[in-house]
Design a binder for these strands. Structure first.
Lengths: 208, 208, 208, 208
DNA sequence: AATGAATGAGGGTTCATTCAT
DNA sequence: CATGAATGAACCCTCATTCAT
């Protein structure tokens, strides 16, 4: 007797996902604006135009939504970072590195709120939240380390402490990301990428 | 023949300073462990073994003690960073840069709790607290920028976007600092410094 | 045929108003018993049988509920005091004055807690709360003053310093109100009113 | 071997009394300015220029000093109110009443801080503090009542409910006192007294 | 007697979470 | 599913009082 013989399931699931996304968007905007701690459930539900109880139908806690947001951001970043292919037919490692950085910077500037949150967390104390971000950084770091090791083997990267150097490289990118986020004007990402590459590969050019 | 025939008064002031330092230490440790927000006055006074009211005899608020801690850390860092002297009789710029980095890394590893806090703050949204840390980062960034500009003029630094490059450099150091803080083992700071210098000045050594 | 086919909505609003009134009642009683300062939120919520947070769903602060209570009391009093109509068709001024006093005394004895609070406040130093009560007293005083002036013009009131006399008149009523509140037995308000009128209009009857 | 062979006892007692009076003065000024509750021990000792512990050498609690202040005020008032002497050689009752009122008004304006406190208290809830003030009011009220009864017996006062009329009379004076305290300008107390007397004895002059 | 650092009970308020409707 | 009134633990902070010096 139900009027809608259409796949109710899909509709419901769709609308559920949509609602969920709305709440997620409201929360990440608020978190970015006020910081996780200062932001309140009240603020989120007001922005998302939902009732208080509804929030808990989609997320089990305030903490949970932060994790979801960070996961989204991390996933976004991960998807844009690709392991450098040393195969013959692949583009040059430098080109691949450049592409990675450019994609990251593009993502980061297209999602400033998410980025803000990733930047903000992942340094704090051993929190379950920080854990995830930390794991991402560790993942990125390992990616860099393995590339460095590979490069050293191939003789294209000078011999160095890969742990320290990877930390420095990752930090450099983080620094540039923060720089982009703070800057009001829109920067030419291609150019910025080239600067980063130049710095990472050639340093400042100081004479040895 | 005792050097200190100074007034007994010092005792009072000393004990006050001592107590203050104890509270400061308890708070830094707790803030570093749990983060500023999660840490509570209760936790601080328990760790410092003082009564609730006593805390407020030394610091006007929870916020105030964080500021005091951050100020101390920033001051500690600032004191270890010296503008590079380009004079003839000065050590080589590279040597001076190395000294700066080494001093910072030494301080940072000697004060992991303070460092943790500085690392943690200054990224969130406009917090009154973050302000100070941000200002420090900005200060450091400007120092680097001006050095870069100077180096470019002298022809010892290749032409680059000083804003981006300074952000990358500062980020690289922050990255290494975070790396040191997370690492359980004690690293040889001299060696780490050399790695940082090598990375900053010569990059990865990738062939153009 | 039910007069109220009004929306069911009223139920919600009603229950909210009811709850609010309960808290208001609990607070008035406690304030009257212990005084505003000694009374605590804990005491109020215990008496009202609500949780701590619930209180703040209805009143933004302890201060706010006092204001609400005082406003209610003042409004109650104001509503019972009417400017004396000197028109031809109006009852005699004496009758109108009598009605005013009787209504006030009736209200005051029906709301001893509220009265206690109004009596208690408006005398301390410039408190934001006292302000409202003070304004009410000033309003009442001005009403009396203008009546006195009018009476003097008409020759029915002897020439006097209206400021002082109004203060004395208002004080006399306050005194009687306090007297009624302290007295355990229930007084005949009509009789008391007549006494007040007799005193106010004819004094003690002492021979000049 | 004591240098001072003078009655040390007296000196000490004197200085103790002096100190005590200073604290009392500081406290009553502060209480009058800020109200009893808002005023703090810190405020008192700062104003009295004594150490925190010293306060408790002279008064056992914050409450105790309020009691002492109120006692002083009440004593001051009591000393200025004299039972009306109906003896033949005595001045006329009216004159005696006038003298009483004038003395009270003089005292009250000379000690605004104390008066403020008496006015403020004595209406609040059944507090130990209010008790004393209340007792004073009751005392004054009984004095008036007995005078009224006497006057009625003598036929110089019209027959009335002495309880109500005494309350009204006392209230009238309180009202005038408050009026004087609030007024910035200095009033001619003799004139004010005459107004009060005229009101109390003859009322407003309204035609019966 | 005088001091003032230390105390800790108690204050008002917030806010993430729950649950009856 | 959606609601939002209700909850209460936990928060930061104040301040009258104490006591070792």
């Amino acid at each position: 007797m139900n009027v809608s013989t259409v796949p109710v399931h899909t509709n419901e699931a769709d609308s559920r996902q949509k609602r969920r996304a709305e709440i997620l968007a409201a929360a990440s905007a608020l978190f970015a604006e006020q910081g996780y701690h200062k932001a309140s459930i009240s603020g989120i539900i007001e922005r998302a135009n939902i009732a208080r109880g509804t929030f808990y139908l989609y997320f089990s806690s305030k903490h949970a939504i932060l994790e979801a947001i960070l996961d989204e951001a991390i996933q976004g970043l991960r998807a844009r970072i690709r392991r450098i292919d040393m195969g013959r037919d692949a583009p040059s490692p430098r080109q691949q590195l450049r592409d990675n950085i450019l994609r990251v910077l593009q993502y980061v500037t297209s999602e400033p709120a998410l980025t803000q949150l990733v930047l903000e967390h992942g340094l704090g104390p051993d929190d379950e939240v920080a854990e995830r971000v930390l794991r991402f950084y560790r993942h990125a770091s390992e990616l860099i380390e393995s590339s460095l090791r590979h490069g050293i083997e191939l003789g294209v990267v000078r011999d160095c402490d890969v742990g320290v150097t990877a930390a420095a490289s990752l930090g450099a990118i983080r620094g540039v990301v923060a720089h982009l986020l703070l800057g009001d004007s829109e920067a030419d990402l291609e150019q910025v990428t080239d600067e980063v590459i130049a710095f990472a590969l050639g340093g400042l050019g100081f004479p040895g």
